[in-house]
């Protein structure tokens, strides 16, 4: 092939997102008539998940398909664009914002100084909240020991009265099983179910209410800038198609797993009432304001999201 690249993802090889991403690379190969061949590698294959930005920027990797929350420590704007907790009721709202509400332009303003270019945004879908205790209302979060990783999710749970615990992903399983934590911000329903979390965390929330991570498809800016226009167009349209493919593939899996879980008398799948979701979103909004103050870019993200949501009567 004319162009041979290696892109790293933020999933293990067994997760369904990984297959969707491989399909993306295949379709680019087909559309470009074999001129672009992209190798998709699982998380940690070349560098750690939170080091891929540096690796793409240095040209060690040519690109990555990842959750930008990993880079919140470089600039909090990554956390805001990558997972604005409580903002989105549906992944399609988020994709609309990124593609037609100015989100992708802002993301490129953030990431281009690193020598990285965003080809397009995707999303996984609302993550399910796994819990050992029923969380039907925002009040039920009081005192709940919930695992919360990097990004804004920690502060929002704290504001909602929970007792967030900063625990790495590899400790979630045993931590939940033995009761070190009561609940976790982890991943989508079907994957939680595959890993066996619901056998002891019997009160999952579906659809989730708290977290919708972005899938940022980006590559080294130098390489991108040197591409002919036809290949750029191919990359962009393949990425937009992948965004919808990802959302609907995961949704289909979730629905199947949810109906199996509903049939299981031991598991109670909780669908939080709309007024409670609104209450959680109001708490989250206070935290967005705090983050808006952090730098010029986080301020811009805040303005842009709020005006998008207000225009569509979602605030």
């Amino acid at each position: 092939a004319e162009y041979e690249w290696t892109f790293q993802t933020s999933e293990t090889a067994g997760e369904p997102q990984f297959e969707v991403k491989k399909a993306w690379a295949d379709s680019i190969k087909t559309m470009s008539d074999g001129r672009i061949a992209i190798e998709i590698l699982p998380v940690n294959a070349v560098v750690q998940a939170n080091q891929t930005l540096d690796a793409v920027s240095a040209g060690i990797l040519q690109g990555h398909l990842t959750d930008p929350s990993y880079f919140s420590g470089q600039n909090p704007a990554f956390g805001m664009l990558g997972n604005l907790v409580g903002a989105w009721g549906d992944p399609l709202e988020y994709l609309e914002y990124m593609q037609h509400g100015g989100g992708e332009e802002l993301y490129n303003e953030l990431v281009e100084p690193y020598g990285v270019h965003l080809i397009g945004a995707g999303a996984t879908g609302l993550e399910s909240f796994v819990s050992k205790k029923p969380v039907r209302t925002v009040d039920d979060l009081k005192g709940l020991k919930v695992r919360a990783p990097e990004g804004m999710v920690y502060n929002i749970f704290q504001k909602a009265g929970a007792a967030p615990v900063n625990l790495p992903g590899s400790e979630v399983y045993t931590g939940l099983e033995k009761g070190v934590i009561d609940a976790a911000d982890y991943t989508v329903f079907a994957t939680n179910d595959d890993q066996g979390l619901h056998s002891f965390a019997k009160y999952p929330s579906y659809p989730g209410f708290h977290s919708l991570p972005m899938v940022a498809v980006s590559m080294n800016k130098g390489i991108w800038d040197g591409l002919p226009a036809d290949l750029k167009a191919i990359m962009e349209s393949a990425t937009d198609a992948m965004a919808y493919d990802m959302v609907f593939t995961l949704k289909a899996r979730d629905i199947k797993a949810v109906s199996a879980a509903r049939a299981n008398p031991d598991i109670e799948v909780i669908d939080m009432a709309p007024e409670e979701r609104a209450k959680f979103r109001r708490i989250a909004q206070q935290e967005w304001k705090v983050w808006a103050e952090k730098n010029e870019l986080t301020g811009k993200v805040y303005e842009s999201v709020v005006s998008f949501l207000t225009d569509r009567n979602l605030m």
């Binding site: 990993y70 919140s72 420590g73 470089q74 909090p76 956390g79 990097e150 990004g151 920690y154 704290q158």
Partner: peptide, 27 residues
């Protein structure tokens, strides 16, 4: 590696942080 972690993309001194709520410059 350390230079990248201690400078912003524009070349100013800026320590890479963890991105958590506490957000220490441990990285």
């Amino acid at each position: 590696m350390f230079w990248r972690a201690s400078h912003s993309p524009l070349g100013e001194w800026q320590l890479e942080r963890s991105g958590t709520s506490w957000n220490p410059p441990f990285p």
